[in-house]
Simulated scan of single mutants.
Amino acid sequence: MKENNKEILSVSGLVVCALLWGFGFPALKAVETLPTFYIISIRFAVAAVVLGILFYKQLKFISRELIKNAFILSLLNFSLYIFTTVGIKYTTSAKASFFSCLGFLIIPILNLILYKQKFTRTTAISVFICLAGIVLLSYSPGMGFGLALGDIICMGSSLTGSFSIIYLDRISQKGENTNPVLLSILMMCFTAVWGFCTALVLGDFTASPTKMDWGILLFIGLFCTCAAFLLQTVCQKYVPSNRVGVIFAIEPTSGAFLSVLLLHERMGLVAILGGILVICSLLYQEILSSKAAASD
Rank of each mutant, 00 (worst) to 15 (best):
K118A: 12
F119S: 05
T120Q: 07
T120P: 05
T120E: 13
T122S: 14
T123P: 04
T123W: 08
T123D: 14
T123Y: 09
A124Q: 10
A124M: 14
S126T: 12
S126L: 11
V127L: 13
V127A: 15
V127R: 09
V127I: 14
V127K: 10
I129N: 07
C130N: 14
C130E: 08
C130R: 06
L131P: 00
L131G: 05
A132K: 09
A132L: 15
A132P: 08
G133W: 03
G133C: 03
I134Q: 08
V135Q: 01
V135R: 01
L136Q: 02
S138P: 02
S138K: 03
S138R: 04
Y139L: 04
S140F: 07
S140E: 15
S140A: 13
S140N: 08
S140I: 13
S140L: 08
M143S: 15
M143Y: 14
M143C: 04
F145V: 02
A148V: 08
A148T: 13
L149S: 13
I152F: 11
I152V: 15
I152P: 06
I152T: 13
I152M: 13
I153R: 01
I153Y: 01
C154Y: 04
C154M: 11
C154V: 12
C154A: 12
M155I: 15
S157H: 01
S158T: 11
S158P: 07
S158L: 09
S158Q: 06
L159G: 13
L159M: 14
T160R: 03
T160H: 01
T160K: 01
G161R: 04
S162T: 13
F163N: 10
I165H: 07
I165D: 05
I165T: 14
Y167S: 03
Y167T: 05
L168N: 10
L168M: 09
R170G: 09
R170F: 11
K174H: 11
K174G: 13
K174L: 11
G175I: 05
G175Q: 02
E176R: 11
E176K: 12
E176D: 08
E176I: 06
N177K: 12
N177S: 11
T178E: 01
N179W: 02
N179Q: 03
P180L: 07
P180A: 06
P180T: 07
V181C: 08
V181Y: 08
V181R: 09
V181A: 09
V181M: 13
L182E: 04
L182N: 04
L183N: 07
S184P: 07
I185Y: 00
I185L: 00
I185Q: 00
L186W: 03
L186T: 08
M187F: 10
M188V: 11
M188C: 14
C189E: 11
C189W: 10
F190P: 09
F190G: 11
F190Q: 10
T191V: 09
T191C: 14
A192F: 07
A192G: 07
V193E: 06
V193H: 05
W194Y: 15
W194M: 11
W194R: 06
G195Q: 09
G195W: 10
F196Q: 02
F196M: 06
C197G: 13
C197Q: 09
T198E: 06
L200W: 05
V201K: 01
L202M: 00
L202R: 00
L202S: 00
G203R: 06
G203M: 07
D204Q: 00
D204V: 00
D204C: 00
F205C: 01
